[in-house]
Write a protein that binds this DNA or RNA. Structure first.
Lengths: 150, 150
DNA sequence: ACCTTATTGTTGACAGGTCAACTAATTTCC
DNA sequence: GGAAATTAGTTGACCTGTCAACAATAAGGT
């Protein structure tokens, strides 16, 4: 028999997927920003963009926005900032004159290589007591949520 | 044999737990805000706080901040706003004169009851093609990450 | 008792994110 | 070919989140 109405739905609240993710995300974000600030002069968004560009070798602003789910306005401003610091280079696209191709500069790559080591270490720390199989399940659930959320 | 250096680490990027979570979260947040806006006059933060208070029956601002990982300043302002709309009531605490006890008002509870139905439906939509067992694993991984992240 | 430290909640200042309007280029479809 | 719709990227306005300082209270240690 259930308790009447004293503490009716704490379970319900915590079972909200979005609530749980948001909570973890807030914690992780704060920690990641701090880690980042300690090692380079990049915001979390800038770092993610750098990583996104590095991952693809060459890309465009719109592609970054889609890939990372960062607002395209924000991407635009971050590109300007990163370009100003010579961390990435912009060039004209072959077919489409609207878009500019984005690639890391030598400095940009150097910063990435240096920082990615730290971020990988952090990730290992975060996931060290999680079974690889569980992590795979975790990712697959994230993908399903992503697909469902549009 | 691996490709030389053309697209070296897209796998690596997507394997970053924080990156993946952030991406999903951005998508989910936008969707949740839209859903919320369509059904009531609450921001996502206000909704989470309402849910947090409802879950505990009676609580304090600091407890909400810890529970939801929302900034205490933000909590303070949201409390003021919700109090102004008579969605929650504040009272003096018995033992500690600094804190105020927060409870939902009748209207607050009514709004919660009405909106929680919609949010549950949304959650069912999001999780419908995820096996319950996988969802449990997902939550347990989230918990481990939360614990590791501090 | 006292001094130090920690905690609660509020506030101001600011960085960051979000949204919508806009131009320019491109595609679609008749 | 040409009007309508779509997409890339920029920008301005605004809202939200974050951080640090602060006063008031509480707790701990000597």
């Amino acid at each position: 028999m259930k308790k009447p109405t004293a503490s009716p739905s704490f379970q319900d609240l915590s079972s909200f997927v979005t609530f749980r993710i948001a909570r973890v995300q807030n914690t992780l974000n704060a920690q990641a920003s701090a880690t980042l600030a300690a090692h380079c002069d990049l915001t979390l968004t800038e770092w993610r963009m750098l990583a996104s560009i590095e991952a693809r070798g060459q890309t465009t602003a719109a592609e970054i926005a889609r890939h990372t789910q960062i607002d395209k306005g924000q991407v635009s401003r971050a590109v300007k900032s990163l370009k100003g610091r010579a961390l990435l280079k912009a060039g004209a696209a072959a077919t489409d004159q609207r878009q500019q191709t984005l690639t890391l500069s030598a400095q940009g790559r150097a910063v990435f290589e240096r920082v990615v080591v730290v971020m990988r270490k952090r990730q290992e720390m975060l996931t060290q007591d999680i079974a690889p199989e569980d992590l795979r399940t975790f990712f697959s659930v994230l993908d399903k949520l992503q697909a469902r959320a549009l």
